[in-house]
Amino acid sequence: MARDVQFTFDCADPAALSAFWAEALGYQVQAPPPGFDSWDQALEAWGVPPERRNDASAAVDPEGGRPRLFFQRVPEGKQAKNRVHLDVRAAPGLEGEERMAALEAEAERLVTHGAKRLERHEPAPPLAFGHIVMADPEGNEFCLD
């Protein structure tokens, strides 16, 4: 049986983190339900108090083929290194210096959107092609691969 999957992130600021990941992956922040021009309008109509309106957010693939990313507010901050992380495939089919240049360009772009660069791993053929470890605005590690 085929199953859908979504990735859920615990975070402090769901709206900001969903906007970051939408930018990083070419996704978009999920649109409000039909009949509403904004999420704030929908949440107001549903009686959600203002202080609870950033409890969740989602980013979706505009073409619908990739998993939904769901962001939920939690009271505690990030405690340790991620056990699972995303690899953002920013240089498919590239090798060597061309690959690393493409990864560097993407790292620079994401830093302007709030990411932090953590470390660069050089290519070490035959198995390691090189990658850059990054962190999103709330410190969740991911790799540019």
Rank of each mutant, 00 (worst) to 15 (best):
F70C: 12
Q41Y: 01
L110Y: 07
Q30F: 03
E122T: 07
G93T: 08
A2R: 14
Q72F: 06
F142P: 05
A2I: 06
A115Y: 10
M134N: 09
E119V: 09
A56L: 05
A90M: 08
V133T: 15
A80Q: 15
L127F: 12
E108V: 12
L118V: 11
P50A: 15
E138V: 06
A12N: 07
Q6F: 13
R89N: 13
G64D: 01
Q28I: 04
A101I: 04
P62A: 01
D40T: 14
A19G: 08
Q6E: 11
E51I: 10
A90R: 07
Q30M: 14
P14E: 02
P32S: 05
N54T: 09
G47A: 13
E23G: 09
P75S: 09
G114L: 06
A42G: 00
L118K: 12
G77C: 00
A58K: 03
E95K: 14
L144D: 09
D37M: 00
G65I: 02
R68N: 09
G114F: 07
R99Y: 04
A42L: 07
A42Q: 08
D55C: 04
D13Y: 05
A91E: 05
G139V: 06
A59R: 02
A128S: 13
L144Q: 10
M134S: 11
R53K: 14
A59C: 01
A31R: 09
T8P: 00
N54Q: 12
D13T: 13
E141M: 06
F9V: 06
A107T: 13
D136E: 11
S57T: 00
Y27E: 00
A105M: 08
P67I: 10
V5L: 14
A22H: 03
P126F: 07
A101H: 10
A12Y: 00
R120Y: 03
C11G: 01
K81E: 14
G26R: 05
E141D: 13
